[in-house]
Design a binder for these strands. Structure first.
Lengths: 218, 218
DNA sequence: AAGTCATTATTGTTCAACAATTATTTATTG
DNA sequence: CAATAAATAATTGTTGAACAATAATGACTT
């Protein structure tokens, strides 16, 4: 019934669509996804939908329960801890590879501008997205396809965790200035200082999120 | 037509089966996988097979060409470089987390024993497998689900690269002793020395593989 | 209210079909 | 004969229906 124009396969599209629903907070943890419903809603067959499900399951955004279908993953405290551990490893390694005219630096600058603009409009969801774009650009300093891919994956999980908590502004907003500082250090080639800043930044961010989590649980 | 007993889904089984065919060297780079053929051979439907294909594609072991199907990935030199970059990041970080009675250490010991035994039987493919088991255990020192998963993935790619070259014994054999040294340093708590040893080990291994690659190309 | 059994809904998997695209063969022409 | 164009075959991309296996629901009994 579908004459396709776009290059990508349908299952790939489905994968991205659901992924976006999750990272944008339209789908929340523990929510079950019915194959019948979703396949009708996204206008694809169940088989195609299931291909997308598998991808998202492997990525950790969906959880599979045999014969009971999939539901949106619910990041546990230990996941937060693990994710930040990975972030420290990947991001710190990435900035160690930085050099003054790396093409990622302008991209980081753009992300900061975008975040500032969205904060001015009080679009906190957008600020969160821009912040993640900054860090994705940062990771691309590593020039490593595989490390970038892993970060792409955990960034989505992290987004899910933030949305879980209702993503209040205070969780993202103060970091824009930190990002700016960090970028300045990198453009100046002050790697060691940048490493320290980023490390502290990540530790603080983790603590904030864990605190919010414990309150949310209680 | 299938009454299933095993817990895992069929597509998961298919995923593992094909994965094994690749890591064990039965399927070589650039080989095209016909849906009709393979689905008959593995006794699953095309739809189920395709679910497995997608997983392997996301993992980088298969390459997808729209309307032309999938073929086994062919690791390029830049992939080798990237993989070793990731290995250094992950493995060195992992051993920094080591402590004397970490449960991963006995597993590493077992892998060494297994490798020695298989070397004695001149089973080089097996030695390669055991070597990878050693390093997988090493990475589990990190206690990070996500870093372990990434390593699981790149280990398979690496295996593919080795098989591509015909996996001559000299590529693996001399490393058993290095593994042993490394493990002794870890059990003794001499982390710094272990880091140095592992780093040099990985650099040397990368160089060896890249050299073999350039010869293979020529 | 707790436990058993029948009923219903959902997932797991297959199959057959057909549109869209690519590969191959045949025909045509210079 | 070589090169190219057209026709044909094969493969992938996607669907919808079917049915078995399992889980969820609800009625019934005590």
């Amino acid at each position: 019934m579908k004459g396709k124009l776009g290059q990508q396969s349908l299952s790939q599209r489905v994968y991205q669509q659901i992924r976006e629903l999750i990272t944008e907070g339209e789908l929340l943890p523990l929510q079950r996804l019915s194959e019948a419903n979703l396949s009708e809603q996204l206008e694809v067959s169940r088989n195609t939908l299931r291909e997308g499900f598998r991808l998202l399951t492997q990525e950790g955004l969906l959880v599979y329960q045999p014969h009971r279908g999939v539901c949106v993953a619910c990041p546990q405290v230990q996941d937060i801890i693990d994710i930040y551990r990975v972030r420290r490893v990947i991001e710190i390694d990435a900035i160690k590879q930085s050099y003054p005219f790396h093409p990622a630096l302008p991209t980081m600058r753009q992300a900061i501008q975008k975040a500032l603009q969205l904060r001015h409009q009080s679009n906190w969801q957008g600020v969160g997205t821009a912040n993640m774009e900054f860090h994705r650009a940062l990771v691309s300093l590593s020039d490593s396809k595989r490390l970038q891919h892993l970060f792409y994956s955990i960034a989505a999980e992290l987004r899910l965790a933030f949305n879980f908590l209702g993503s209040p502004e205070r969780l993202h907003s103060p970091y824009i200035e930190k990002n700016d500082q960090l970028l300045m250090l990198l453009t100046a080639g002050k790697i060691n200082q940048a490493v320290t800043l980023l490390h502290d930044y990540l530790v603080a961010s983790e603590r904030l999120l864990l605190t919010a989590y414990s309150q949310h649980t209680a």
